[in-house]
């Protein structure tokens, strides 16, 4: 293992009973490959307690800490608190506008996470204007983005990672239909990432997107949706 901090990441694993055991052989090698595993949302298919137990079984008890955010699928059954509790009981740290710090051979790795939301990208996005439904949609994006910014700014660490489900940039959506970009992410998330000295931003959600991008402030963004990376997880090495 080198002296940098190695971050493994995957999103959109959509675990149910039929998936349990599929990732496990690759996960058993994580201890040799990485220092932490990030799960970038859409851990389940419908956000049920049963599926959360399957996630905990598949991604729990690993050789490295596991840190997750939830995605839109994980909200579908309105059981977010229960899903979160089951994951946490299984040893998975779940972030939502919050952060955690891991000690990696003396380096403090700070991870701030939030689900994120849609709205679109600078100059081509929805605004808090008009019908209550439209205002609520963008208000939620703004709230989540502000919460992520606060978490990123507050975390005391040597190297900082932002973890989201929705995308902060359009770069990593290339391959998706342009018409659905506003439902895949928001530039307000990029603004949050750029508000602190962030080393890497990781997201999922865009199954047909592209792995690599960057925020306007130059922070590298990686789309780790499982169908994009086409392996159990990707590994990124960060040097403080």
């Amino acid at each position: 293992m080198s002296s940098g901090v190695r971050v493994a990441a995957v999103g959109d694993v959509h675990v149910d009973r039929d998936v349990v055991g599929r990732y496990r052989p690759a996960l058993e090698e994580l201890g040799d490959k990485a220092d932490v595993l990030l799960l970038a949302g859409d851990l389940t298919r419908h956000g049920t307690a049963d599926e959360a137990h399957c996630v905990a079984e598949e991604f729990g008890n690993l050789a490295v800490p596991v840190v997750a955010v939830l995605g839109n699928h994980d909200y579908h059954s309105d059981e977010v608190h229960l899903v979160t509790k089951i994951l946490e009981d299984g040893g998975i740290t779940v972030l939502e506008q919050s952060s955690t710090v891991l000690d990696v051979r003396g380096t403090r790795l700070g991870i701030a996470g939030a689900k994120g939301f849609g709205g679109g990208f600078a100059g081509k996005c929805a605004s808090e204007f008009g019908e209550p439904e439209t205002k609520a949609f963008i208000h939620h994006t703004r709230d989540v983005s502000n919460g992520l910014a606060a978490a990123l700014q507050a975390v005391e660490c040597d190297v900082r990672v932002a973890l989201m489900h929705y995308s902060p940039v359009p770069d990593t959506l290339v391959g998706e239909p342009l018409e659905i970009y506003p439902f895949l992410g928001s530039y307000l998330l990029a603004q949050a990432v750029d508000s602190a000295p962030t080393a890497l931003a990781v997201h999922g959600h865009a199954h047909a997107g592209t792995e690599r991008g960057a925020t306007p402030g130059g922070v590298k963004v990686r789309n780790v949706a499982h169908p994009v990376i086409k392996q159990a997880y990707n590994v990124y090495e960060l040097t403080p």
């Binding site: 499982h226 169908p227 086409k230 392996q231 990124y236 090495e237 960060l238």
Partner: peptide
């Protein structure tokens, strides 16, 4: 079915 192989490469950020 999306593959679940072990990554062989590490990207330096």
């Amino acid at each position: 079915v999306t593959r679940v192989g072990v990554p062989q490469e590490v990207e330096q950020i």
